[in-house]
C-alpha cells in the first residue's frame, strides 16, 4: 500500500480517535452502552487498521506476538484474580461487596476490574487472530483488488 496517500493520511488521523473511543467505551460501560467486550474489539480495530495500511511487519515490530500472547492470559488472570481477591477478603468468589467499605462502591470497583480483564483478553485475542490470518503470504496481487 505504498502509493495510497489518502488512505495513509486518513488512517493516521483516525487511529487516535478510535483508540480514545475504545477507552471511552471501556470505562463508560457502567453508564452507557458498551463494556469490555466492545471496547476490546474497537481497540483491536485501530491496530488492525494500522496493520492493513502500514503493513503487518511494521505493526508486528511495534507490538510483537509474544506481548499479545501474554496479554490474553493477563486478561483472564485479571478477571479470575478479582474473584480470588474477594475470596481472600472472606466473601464468595466474584462477590464484589467486600472490595470497599460500602457494598455498592465495591461493586463499582469489581465491575471496572473484570471489564478491564474482558477488554484486555478480547483485544489481544482479536489481534492474535488477525496476525495469524494476515501473516500468511497472500496469493493476490495488490492491484487486483
Amino acid at each position: 500500500m505504498k502509493y495510497h496517500l489518502i488512505l495513509r493520511v486518513v488512517t493516521r488521523l483516525l487511529v487516535g480517535p478510535i483508540l480514545l473511543y475504545g477507552l471511552y467505551v471501556q470505562f463508560h460501560g457502567d453508564f452507557g452502552p458498551g463494556g469490555g467486550f466492545q471496547a476490546g474489539v474497537i481497540f483491536a480495530v485501530a491496530f488492525i487498521l494500522y496493520g492493513i495500511v502500514f503493513g503487518l511487519r511494521d505493526l508486528r515490530n511495534r507490538f510483537p506476538d509474544r506481548v499479545i500472547h501474554q496479554l490474553f492470559a493477563l486478561g483472564v488472570l485479571i478477571y479470575a484474580g478479582t474473584g480470588f481477591v474477594s475470596v481472600f477478603l472472606g466473601a464468595n468468589f466474584l462477590d464484589y461487596n467486600v472490595l470497599a467499605e460500602k457494598g455498592y462502591e465495591g461493586q463499582h470497583l469489581g465491575i471496572i476490574a473484570v471489564e478491564l480483564g474482558v477488554g484486555i483478553a478480547v483485544f489481544a485475542v482479536m489481534l492474535a487472530i488477525y496476525y495469524a490470518f494476515a501473516a500468511r503470504p497472500p496469493r493476490i496481487d495488490d492491484k487486483d483488488w
Binding site: 453508564f31 452507557g32 463494556g35 455498592y104 461493586q107 465491575i111 471489564e115
Partner: peptide, 11 residues
C-alpha cells in the same frame, strides 16, 4: 439499590 449504576446490562 445494590450496584448504583444506570446500565443494568453491565450490572
Amino acid at each position: 439499590d445494590e450496584i448504583h449504576i444506570p446500565n443494568i446490562v453491565t450490572a
